[in-house]
Amino acid sequence: MYKITNRNLHRDFAYFYVGLIIAFSFSGIILNHRQDWYPMDYTYESEEVAIALDASTTDISQEYIEAFSKEWDVEYDGHRVRDNTLRVYYKDNVILDVDMKTGNGLLEYKRKVPFIGHTMFLHKSTNSFWIWYSDIFGAAMLLIAITGMLIPNGKNGFKSRGWKFAVAGILFPLLFLILYA
């Protein structure tokens, strides 16, 4: 007969969510270092291009971009102008960056990094089903943390010394927020 105890709840929820714990751990670490390495995608092919831009930054339209993009066999998906750079997004993860002053640019064909890039997709997903599943996962992580604290008894238990570590673990991020946020 199955008896509901802190140890059993902790173990079973941890077993069930171990894959997601690992995936979110990897992607969370990588998101922390995305300025150095962003594996959502990598460039597998690139091509230097020169475009004769005769429009001002306010006159750039989808039609204008589609006209000079025909030679690359790509489908327009959006664009933006920032800091004198035109960035054009095409379907199938193709990106064009063009210097608005010179017309010189780089057309990049990108792919998602296997496994790691896919875990980041999960971490950043806005799909409503996945948001609910992630919320349930967050609640399960709370359950895992709480039941994990309550498993040990005696001199190493939460009441004896575990609460000190828990307070330190809570104070550290709070201190960081106060000093750096």
Rank of each mutant, 00 (worst) to 15 (best):
L106P: 01
F137H: 09
S46V: 05
L53K: 06
V113F: 14
S134H: 13
Y109W: 08
A50M: 14
D99K: 03
K159M: 06
S56H: 10
E108D: 05
F129W: 15
T58K: 15
I146V: 11
S69C: 01
R111D: 12
E71T: 04
V88W: 01
E47P: 04
E108I: 07
A55V: 09
I144T: 08
W163K: 13
L106E: 07
D99G: 04
Y90H: 00
A52D: 15
S128L: 15
R80N: 12
N84Y: 03
R82N: 11
V113E: 14
L53I: 14
T147H: 06
E71S: 10
I136A: 15
T43R: 06
A50S: 15
M100H: 09
A145E: 02
I60G: 00
H79M: 06
E48L: 10
Q62G: 02
D77T: 07
F68S: 01
D83T: 02
S69Q: 02
M100G: 11
R161E: 08
K159N: 04
D77I: 02
I60W: 01
D73C: 00
S128N: 15
E47K: 12
K155V: 01
I60V: 11
R161F: 12
L107Y: 06
I144H: 08
K159C: 00
M149E: 08
R87F: 01
I146W: 10
I116R: 08
H123W: 09
M141A: 13
H79K: 05
A140C: 11
N127E: 12
P152F: 07
Y44D: 09
R161N: 14
Y90G: 00
L150F: 09
L142I: 04
D59E: 14
A55N: 07
E47R: 09
E71P: 00
M100Y: 11
E45I: 05
G148M: 02
M141W: 09
M141T: 13
K155Q: 08
L150R: 04
G117L: 07
A67W: 02
T57E: 14
S46N: 12
R82F: 03
T43N: 09
L86E: 01
L107M: 06
E63F: 07
V49H: 06
K159E: 00
R87N: 00
F68W: 03
A139L: 14
D99R: 02
S125A: 14
A67S: 08
I131Q: 15
Y76D: 01
N104C: 08
R80L: 11
I151K: 04
L86T: 04
K124G: 13
S128A: 14
F68R: 00
I136N: 12
S61E: 04
I146D: 10
A55D: 05
R111M: 12
E45D: 12
S128T: 15
V98H: 00
S125D: 13
N156L: 14
D99I: 00
L122A: 12
